[in-house]
């Protein structure tokens, strides 16, 4: 554990909490892609199956359980509790276009051809593209509330900090996880355009912003 990794995990937690509290307080999930949130719940479910098979640390176990619980709570709020406010007409990204290649790739490129490893690889690949329905939705509607932008900012920051963590780990422990690093870099690239707009528009006080 290093400071970049810890800061990355904390930004991830902050992002998830921002989204959950936004929905809870406004009693509305308008502008939020339920599809992205289902994909994230699927990411955590397939990655954290090792909760049942191996113990790494108390921190690791607690964070996994928290991420799982929060992601399912978010999905519950969107599709059950506040489903009247769910903007399904604009959440039209075809998820199968992500799932089919991701499933295919996880069978082709993995550390060992076992169900657990294939599911772990699937979760890593899926996480790198899971935000696409949300970004697609913002592009379609032309704007997002600033709170949604803060959510995306912290999610992007989490990815960027993980890259710094990998650079650090490579130099200090010789650690290099090819699958995680390659898909992590791909994932972070998706946020670059957003980061630029966030800094130039949201932080300079316009509140709302639109993606080109």
């Amino acid at each position: 554990m290093n400071i970049f990794r810890l800061a990355g995990d904390m930004s991830h937690l902050v992002a998830i909490l921002i989204l959950l509290l936004k929905i809870w307080r406004s009693r509305s999930c308008a502008g939020i892609s339920g599809k992205s949130q289902v994909l994230f719940a699927l990411v955590f479910t397939t990655r954290y199956l090792d909760l049942f098979t191996s113990f790494i640390s108390a921190y690791n176990t607690v964070m996994k359980v928290v991420f799982l619980a929060l992601s399912y709570a978010t999905v519950y709020l969107i599709y059950m509790r506040f489903r009247n406010s769910y903007d399904s007409e604009n959440d039209t990204f075809r998820v199968e276009f992500l799932l089919v290649p991701v499933i295919g790739l996880s069978f082709l490129e993995n550390y060992s051809f076992t169900p657990m490893e294939i599911l772990w690889t699937f979760s890593i690949f899926l996480e790198s593209v899971a935000i696409m329905p949300q970004l697609f939705m913002i592009t379609k509607t032309g704007e997002a509330e600033s709170i949604t932008n803060h959510y995306l900012f912290f999610l992007g920051l989490y990815r960027a900090l993980y890259i710094v963590n990998w650079v650090w780990r490579y130099h200090t422990e010789g650690f290099f996880d090819q699958i995680a690093v390659v898909s992590g870099v791909v994932q972070t690239i998706f946020y670059c355009d957003f980061f630029y707009l966030y800094v130039t528009r949201v932080l300079r006080g316009r509140g709302k912003m639109s993606l080109p």
Binding site: R5, S57, M63, Y111, S112, D177, I179
Partner: peptide, 10 residues
């Protein structure tokens, strides 16, 4: 030893 090595990250 690929397996196990990456499992400490979330």
């Amino acid at each position: 030893d690929a397996e196990g090595k990456h499992k400490d990250e979330l």
